[in-house]
Amino acid sequence: MSTPNTLRLIKYVDALREGAEQAMDADKSVFMMGLDIDDHKGIQGSTTGLVEKFGPERVFTTPLSEDAMTGVAIGAAMAGQRPIHVHIRMDFLMLCMNQLVNIAAKSHYMYGGTVQVPLVVRTMIGKSWGQGAQHSQGLHSMFAHVPGMKVVAPSNAYDAKGLTIQAVRDNNPVLIMEHRLLYGTEAYVPETPYTVEFGMARTLRSGDAITIVGVSNMVMESMRAAELLAEQGIECEVIDPVTISPLDFDAIEASVNRTGRLLVVDNGWLNCGFSAEVLARVAESDHIKQKIVMKRIGFAATTCPTTPSLEDAFYPNPKTIAMLAYQMVTGKQDWEPNSESCQLAYQSQFKGPF
């Protein structure tokens, strides 16, 4: 681990770029490909300067053909390279589902361990960009459902860099889910390369009233909701799973066993999703002896809207998270945070785990 004097406050998007750059510096078999990654905007800045440093043979754009290009990336990985394949939107992964699910995730098993697929897939989700039903979806649960596919969801710049380097070094396909609204958030990040271990959740805030598990940007929203609840004397324990698959259920289980309440805030739909998986594991646990009050909140059960007014009802936010948690703790529905408090909560920014 780097010494404290090497820490800098940098943006999530810059941490993504720095993680990839340091991984490419350390290993010449690492290359990056994807639609428009060599554009002057560099995927909102996450690939800026990489083609100038490493050249067009290691950083190059691809045709608009997700299925074929993912096949190229998988073949390169099988041949000993370590590709980072950038997909601008998670929605577009539906166009290469067969390649990822049936080839990338399963080849190691199907060929008796003789084949490795060290492929990193970067993919973006988001809200408030008016791109609606086919460009705004959080589909992480689909990929976490498949053995052989690792799914990670950095919620801050520190994890964005550490998980990127860890993913590149892993010998299995890893999907990195990045939230657009996190790109501008800042955290303290070491200058030197480091990794964030898969399957290790992090407790960001301690409390004894309720456990809140957030995913991706919903970690940030849950932290803001916890501030609103603290004003009411309710102390929440907020857990960032960091990786969705593998999932550190032990950390969630231990927290829930203490608080007796669990609220999962997902960045996707509830039906057959990550939130359902967490609640099911709690219900099946042999180590939790008390009855647990459990709820979940995520996308509304409709396609993603385009307008901000509809987005307010579609996505969880600090106000809706806080009100549901308050109801779970008190059994009452007699509190609603005022608009000024919610605005202040949105102004606060989680600076990362260190």
Rank of each mutant, 00 (worst) to 15 (best):
F350C: 10
A104N: 01
T330S: 14
R89K: 08
M223G: 11
K291S: 07
E284Q: 11
L163Q: 11
Q131F: 11
L64I: 13
C342I: 15
I321Q: 01
D250W: 08
I234M: 01
F198Y: 10
V213A: 02
G132V: 11
A283F: 14
G126A: 07
I292F: 13
R8I: 13
Y12P: 12
E227K: 09
K11Y: 14
I252G: 03
Q166E: 07
L263V: 09
M323F: 04
E253S: 14
V30G: 06
A79G: 04
E235T: 15
P83I: 14
R89D: 07
I288L: 05
A225H: 04
D266V: 02
A209V: 12
R58I: 05
A209H: 13
Y326T: 13
F249T: 06
G126I: 00
E52K: 01
V117L: 03
P337I: 15
A153M: 09
G233I: 15
E231A: 10
L175Y: 08
A77E: 03
I210R: 03
M200Q: 15
L35V: 14
H85N: 14
M200W: 15
P305Q: 02
V293S: 12
L344W: 09
G138F: 00
F31C: 09
T195F: 03
H87N: 10
T302V: 04
M200S: 10
K351M: 05
T302G: 05
V72Y: 06
C272Y: 06
W335C: 12
V264T: 07
A230D: 13
A276S: 05
S255A: 12
N257P: 07
M218K: 05
T164Y: 03
I84N: 02
E227L: 07
T6H: 09
A313C: 15
T47A: 04
V51I: 13
V215A: 00
G19M: 04
D170S: 02
P83K: 15
M294C: 09
A144M: 10
E21F: 10
A153W: 07
S128D: 13
V196K: 00
E227R: 12
T3M: 10
M94Y: 13
Q131C: 03
S341F: 06
M149R: 09
S348A: 15
G298E: 02
A322L: 07
R169Y: 15
V117E: 01
M33L: 05
N102C: 01
T47Q: 04
A226Q: 03
L95Q: 15
G71P: 00
V120S: 09
L204G: 04
G148S: 02
T3P: 15
T185E: 12
A26P: 01
R296K: 11
G55L: 06
M1N: 14
V120K: 01
C96Y: 03
D14H: 01
